[in-house]
Amino acid sequence: MPLSLEIVSPEKLLLSRPVDMVVIPASEGDMGVMEGHTPMIVMLRGGTIDLYEGDRIIDRLFVDGGFAEVTQERCTVLANKAIPLAEVNKAEAERRLAEAEAAYEAADKRDVATEDAALDVVQSARAMTEAAG
């Protein structure tokens, strides 16, 4: 299995293993990465990472946004948080979504950067609820 995938959070190295393909939630749409991909640095939105071995999904993880560095032979995901999909807690996800929406309502809409940041949090929380459901 040629592509080596690494998922790292600031607090530790979460996962490091070879895979055939990985689908990452890039900011402008999901992106499948296989060996020999053109080198890229992409921003991630909140969503799920799918690990493929052949045609089979062997693992799915939820990430709450971050960055990914893709080179011909590896894919490195820098996320603040990555949790196996099975462990995503629906109740907690919904609570976070409610919080994020409240924060968005309260955010200063005149400032584009603040609004965008708040919107990102809402999007990430929504992706988490979807992942849980």
Partner: peptide
Amino acid sequence: SGAIYDFEPDEETILAK
């Protein structure tokens, strides 16, 4: 490693984050 990266979205948006 001599790689020229592509950026998505553009460099400055990523940098800002």
